[in-house]
Amino acid sequence: MDFGVGLMVLGGFLLGGAWSIWRADHDTEGRTGAQVLFAGILLVAALLATASGVLRVI
């Protein structure tokens, strides 16, 4: 498997993790600050991994 494709797959997994954390809110309290922060960090990591994977493939 090419390294760029692996980075894009990793970006997809990280994006799925960010979505999962974002959707895991409490019924009455909503999202906590830690959930928002961690989902944001995972989203940025997913975007960086996907962008670098695309650039490696090109």
Rank of each mutant, 00 (worst) to 15 (best):
M1F: 03
D2A: 11
D2R: 08
F3D: 13
G4D: 10
G4Q: 11
G4T: 05
G6Y: 02
L7I: 00
L7S: 02
M8S: 08
M8E: 07
V9A: 12
V9Y: 02
G11K: 15
G12Y: 07
G12C: 06
F13R: 01
F13H: 07
F13E: 00
F13I: 10
L15F: 14
G17M: 13
A18M: 12
W19E: 03
W19I: 15
S20D: 02
I21P: 08
W22A: 15
R23Y: 02
R23W: 01
A24M: 10
D25Y: 15
D27G: 14
D27F: 12
G30W: 14
G30I: 13
R31Y: 07
R31N: 02
R31V: 07
T32S: 14
G33K: 10
G33C: 04
A34L: 14
Q35M: 09
Q35S: 14
V36M: 11
L37S: 05
L37A: 13
A39M: 03
G40L: 01
G40E: 01
I41T: 07
L42I: 01
L43P: 03
L43Y: 07
L43V: 05
V44I: 12
V44R: 10
A45Y: 07
A45L: 15
A46F: 10
A46R: 12
L48V: 02
L48N: 07
A51I: 00
S52L: 05
S52V: 00
S52Y: 12
G53W: 02
G53M: 02
G53A: 04
V54N: 12
V54T: 11
R56Q: 11
R56S: 09
V57Q: 05
I58G: 12
I58R: 09
I58W: 06
